[in-house]
Amino acid sequence: MTVLDAQALAGLTTLDPTGANRLVQRVLATYQGSLGKLMRQMSDARGSGDHAGVRLAAHTLKSSSASIGALELSRLCSAVEQAVREGQHDAVPALVDELQAEARRVDRAVQAMLAS
């Protein structure tokens, strides 16, 4: 499975077909900044047992991840959000671990795209 869905990225490209406005690069750079911030918030919330904080960070990251084609990360955000909402707190740590690993993969993929 690719880290970033080519079809989602192509959708962004159609909004700036010539690339003159550097829309894709700006969106990816903004996403990367928010990814780091939200992952720190999730980690802090997890460390303090703040399930609502974990859910909020996952919820916030879910749609922005989907919009840049990080579909697996978006799916994991949804799973974390649902587990917290349903009170399945025993499942949350493993899901967050998986989400964090995928977030690192997405971060590397975004960084590679920004560098090219």
Rank of each mutant, 00 (worst) to 15 (best):
A79Q: 10
A79V: 06
A79P: 05
V80K: 01
V80D: 01
E81W: 09
E81Q: 13
E81C: 09
E81F: 05
E81A: 08
E81L: 10
Q82K: 13
Q82G: 10
A83W: 04
A83E: 02
A83I: 03
A83C: 02
V84F: 00
V84P: 01
V84A: 00
R85H: 07
R85Q: 11
R85G: 09
R85P: 04
R85K: 12
E86T: 10
E86I: 03
E86A: 10
E86R: 05
E86S: 09
G87N: 08
Q88L: 06
Q88M: 09
Q88C: 02
Q88Y: 03
Q88V: 03
H89R: 14
H89C: 13
H89M: 15
H89S: 15
D90R: 09
D90C: 08
D90V: 09
D90L: 07
D90I: 05
A91F: 05
A91H: 10
A91C: 05
A91D: 12
V92E: 03
V92K: 05
V92M: 08
P93F: 00
P93N: 01
A94H: 04
A94K: 11
A94C: 06
A94W: 00
L95K: 01
L95T: 02
L95G: 01
V96D: 05
D97F: 04
D97V: 01
D97G: 02
D97Q: 03
E98F: 00
E98R: 07
E98P: 02
E98Q: 11
E98C: 04
E98H: 04
L99I: 00
L99W: 01
L99K: 02
Q100V: 07
Q100G: 11
Q100D: 10
Q100A: 14
Q100K: 10
Q100P: 09
Q100T: 14
Q100N: 12
A101Y: 04
A101K: 08
A101L: 09
A101T: 08
A101M: 08
A101W: 01
A101S: 05
E102C: 03
E102Q: 12
E102W: 00
A103N: 11
A103H: 08
A103W: 06
A103R: 04
A103T: 10
R104N: 12
R104S: 14
R104T: 13
R104G: 14
R104M: 12
R105H: 13
R105F: 10
R105W: 06
R105C: 13
V106K: 09
V106S: 07
D107I: 12
D107R: 15
D107G: 15
D107P: 14
D107M: 14
D107H: 15
D107V: 11
R108W: 07
R108N: 11
R108V: 10
R108K: 13
R108P: 06
A109D: 02
A109I: 03
A109E: 07
A109T: 04
A109S: 07
V110P: 06
V110D: 06
Q111L: 11
Q111H: 14
A112Q: 12
A112W: 04
A112Y: 09
A112I: 08
M113F: 11
M113P: 10
M113I: 13
M113C: 10
M113L: 15
L114R: 11
L114T: 12
L114H: 13
L114G: 14
L114K: 13
L114S: 12
